[in-house]
Design a binder for these strands. Structure first.
Length: 547
RNA sequence: GCGCCAGUAGCUCAGUUGGAUAGAGCAACAGCCUUCUAAGCUGUGGGUCGGGGGUUCGAUUCCCUCCUGGCGCGCCA
C-alpha cells in the first residue's frame, strides 16, 4: 500500500542470496533527515554479525543484487555505519496518490480484524452523579479506540456497564432521602459516605414535586429507582453532547436477577478454587499468582464487587466476544488481576489475557491556579458538560486524545478556555478547511478529481514531496495505532501532517497556475483533504469545510 | 513494604517497538497579508533525555539499581 512491499521483497531476495536466513524481515523506516532519502534500512547492520561481514561491505553487496525497477526505487546508497538509503521512483508516489483518492473514505481502512467480534467497554460510570472530567478522557479514548478497531476490520460492539446494584446505589438513595426530608423541614442526617453534590438536592426537589404521596421519601426503593433513572438520563445527555454512542447498556442488577452471580460462584466452588474462612467464602487467587486470596462472599452474605464483574465477563465470552477490551482509569488497576483470575478459575476455556485492559492515568483539573479535588461525595468536580460548554466538543476530544493514555493529564480549565483559539485541533481543522477552500473558490467538484489525467511528476517541490510521503504513511499509521490501541498516534500524525499541508499551501498556489501544474496540485489538495478528514473522523472530531 | 504508570527545552508533551545532528505546540524575541482563509508562514534562542551501572557496532528506547511524583494494595466499588 505504501509502496514498501516491493522494496521489502527485493531486500529479502538479495539478503537470502547472500546467505541470510529465510525468515529475515527487513525493517524500513523514514530517515530522520529527509535529505537522506525516502526510506532507510538497517538490514546490513543486522546481518553483519550472523554473516560475518562488515556492515558497509554487506550493504554494497545488497545494493548490487537489488533490481531497482522491481523494487520501485530510483537510487540506493550506503550511509553512516551501514544504512542503506533509498529514493523512491516518482511513479510510486503518483500511483500511491491515485490509489489514495480512489479509496476515498476507505483510505486507511484495512481488514486486519477480518470481521471478528470485539467488545469494547468504556465509561461505565456509576449512576450516582454526572460524568466528570475523568469520564471525559475515557469517553474520548474508548470512542477513538472503537473507531480504530472498526477501521481495521473488527466488528465492534460498544458497551456501557452500569453498576446499579451495589452499596453505592444504596448510598445514593439514602442521600436523596435525607435531602428530601431536610427540604420538608425534618431533621435528617446524610448517610456516612453519602453524596453531597448540589445535584442531590435538585433530585430531592424533583422527587418531592413528582411524588406528592411520599413527602418524606419513605419509599426508599422508589427513591432509588427515581434517582438512578434521572441520573442515567443526565449521563445520556452528557454522552450525547460529547457525540458518544453505545450499542449495549449492560445492567449489573441483571446479573443478580438472572442468577448469573450465583451460577458463577457455584462454578468456582465446583472447580475447587474456593474455601470457607471466618464466615466468608474465599477464592484461591494465590494459585494464579496473586499475593493474597480474595473474599468472594462476605460474612454478611453479600458479594464483593469482583464476583459480579467475573459473571459479567463470562457473558461477554458467551455472547461470542473472543476479544474484549476494557478502557478504565488506572485507579481500577487492581481489578485487572482479579477479574482475569476469576475467569481462569472457572475452567471454561477463557484465555489467560482475557479481557485486555487499556488503563489511562488520572486527570487532574486546575482551575484558578489550584487543583480541583474531584470527589463526587464532596460534590466538587468539573463535568464533561462544563468542558464542552467552555471549549467545544472538538477541542475537548482532541485535548483528551493528544497524549498517551498512560501519562497523567492536567486539564487546566482556564487555559483551555482562554487559549481555545490556539488549540491544536483548530490547526488541523484549518488545514482541512484550506484544502476545501481551494475547490470552493475554484468552483471545482473535489470528488471529480481522480488524478488519472494528471502528470503528477510535476509535484517536485520539497514541500510537495514531504506532504505526499506523509499522506502515503497514513494506512500504516492507522494499522499501528489500532494494534497498539493508541489513538494519540493519530492525533500526533494529524498535527504533523496539517503542518506539512500549511507549509505547502503557503509555498505553492493551486488555482491560476498553468493547467498541467494546477491539475497535479488539485490531486494533492484532494488527497490531503481526504486524509485529514479520515483521520479526524477516527478521533470523532469534525472536519469543517470552512472556518 | 509490594505492584502498576510516569520523569525528555521555561511550560504541556511526541519520539515510528534499538538507529544517523533528540522533535512539536505554547511562552520569548525578530520578520511576512494586492494572489486559493494571517486560526497561517519564516527565522532566533533554549537539552548532563531524573542519577548511576550494564547489554552491543549503536540506548531516550532493553536489563539492574537508586531518587522523585501519581495510582492501587479492604469481608469498599
Amino acid at each position: 500500500m505504501d509502496g514498501t512491499d516491493l522494496l521489502r521483497a527485493e531486500l529479502v531476495r538479495a539478503a537470502q542470496s547472500l546467505g541470510a536466513p529465510a525468515d529475515v524481515v527487513p525493517v524500513l523506516e523514514r530517515p530522520r533527515d529527509p535529505s537522506f532519502g525516502d526510506w532507510a534500512t538497517n538490514l546490513a547492520m543486522v546481518l553483519a554479525k550472523p554473516l560475518g561481514r562488515k556492515p558497509r561491505d554487506l550493504a554494497a553487496a545488497l545494493i548490487e543484487r537489488i533490481d531497482k525497477s522491481r523494487a520501485g526505487i530510483s537510487s540506493a546508497e550506503i550511509a553512516g555505519p551501514g544504512f542503506i538509503n533509498f529514493r523512491v521512483s516518482a511513479d510510486v508516489f503518483s500511483e500511491g496518490l491515485r490509489a489514495l483518492i480512489a479509496a476515498g473514505e476507505q483510505y486507511g481502512r484495512t481488514n486486519a480484524g477480518q470481521g471478528c467480534p470485539v467488545n469494547v467497554e468504556f465509561v461505565s460510570a456509576n449512576p450516582t452523579g454526572p460524568l466528570h472530567v475523568g469520564h471525559g478522557r475515557q469517553a474520548a479514548l474508548g470512542d477513538a479506540i472503537t473507531s480504530l478497531l472498526a477501521a481495521s476490520g473488527w466488528k465492534v460492539t460498544r458497551e456501557f456497564y452500569y453498576n446499579d446494584a451495589g452499596a453505592q446505589i444504596m448510598n445514593l438513595a439514602l442521600s436523596v432521602q435525607a435531602r428530601v426530608r431536610q427540604l420538608g423541614g425534618v431533621e435528617a442526617a446524610m448517610p456516612e459516605g453519602g453524596y453531597h453534590g448540589e445535584y442531590i438536592r435538585d433530585l430531592a426537589q424533583r422527587y418531592i414535586d413528582e411524588h406528592s404521596s411520599d413527602p418524606n421519601a419513605d419509599a426508599l426503593d422508589a427513591v432509588r429507582r427515581f434517582a438512578v433513572r434521572e441520573l442515567r438520563k443526565e449521563q445520556d445527555l452528557d454522552l450525547q453532547a460529547f457525540g458518544v454512542k453505545f450499542d449495549v447498556y449492560f445492567l449489573e442488577s441483571s446479573l443478580y436477577s438472572d442468577g448469573r452471580v450465583e451460577a458463577t460462584v457455584e462454578r468456582l466452588v465446583a472447580a475447587g478454587h474456593t474455601y470457607q474462612k471466618d464466615g466468608a467464602l474465599w477464592l484461591k487467587t494465590t494459585d494464579y499468582g496473586d499475593d493474597k486470596d480474595r473474599v468472594m462472599r462476605k460474612s454478611d452474605g453479600t458479594y464483593t464487587y469482583f464476583v459480579p464483574d467475573v459473571a459479567y465477563h463470562v457473558t461477554k465470552w458467551e455472547r461470542g466476544f473472543t476479544r474484549a477490551i476494557n478502557v478504565q482509569g488506572a485507579d481500577h488497576h487492581s481489578t485487572v488481576t482479579r477479574v482475569r483470575i476469576g475467569l481462569q478459575a472457572l475452567d471454561i476455556g477463557i484465555p489467560e489475557g482475557y479481557p485486555e485492559y487499556v488503563l489511562h492515568q488520572m486527570v487532574t483539573v486546575m482551575r484558578g491556579g489550584d487543583e480541583v479535588k474531584i470527589s463526587k461525595r464532596a460534590g466538587s468536580y468539573v463535568t464533561v458538560r462544563d468542558l464542552i460548554d467552555e471549549v467545544g466538543r472538538d477541542a475537548v476530544r482532541y485535548f483528551f486524545l493528544m497524549r498517551k493514555g498512560d501519562s497523567q493529564l492536567v486539564f487546566d480549565v482556564d487555559v483551555a478556555r482562554s487559549q481555545s483559539d490556539e488549540n491544536p485541533v483548530y490547526y488541523i481543522q484549518m488545514a482541512h478547511a484550506r484544502m476545501s477552500g481551494i475547490f470552493r473558490v475554484g468552483e471545482i467538484d473535489a470528488s471529480s478529481v481522480t488524478g488519472v489525467d494528471a502528470d503528477l511528476s510535476v509535484l517536485s517541490l520539497p514541500e510537495e514531496q514531504e506532504l505526499m510521503k506523509a499522506l502515503l504513511d497514513y494506512p500504516a499509521l492507522v494499522a499501528g495505532a489500532a494494534e497498539a490501541l493508541e489513538p494519540h498516534r493519530i492525533a500526533t500524525y494529524l498535527h504533523d501532517t496539517a503542518g506539512k499541508a500549511h507549509l505547502w499551501y503557503h509555498k505553492a498556489h493551486v488555482l491560476n497556475e498553468p493547467d498541467h501544474l494546477m491539475r497535479a496540485r488539485l490531486v494533492l489538495a484532494r488527497a490531503t483533504q481526504l486524509v485529514l478528514r479520515n483521520g479526524l473522523q477516527l478521533l470523532g472530531i469534525t472536519a469543517p469545510e470552512r472556518m
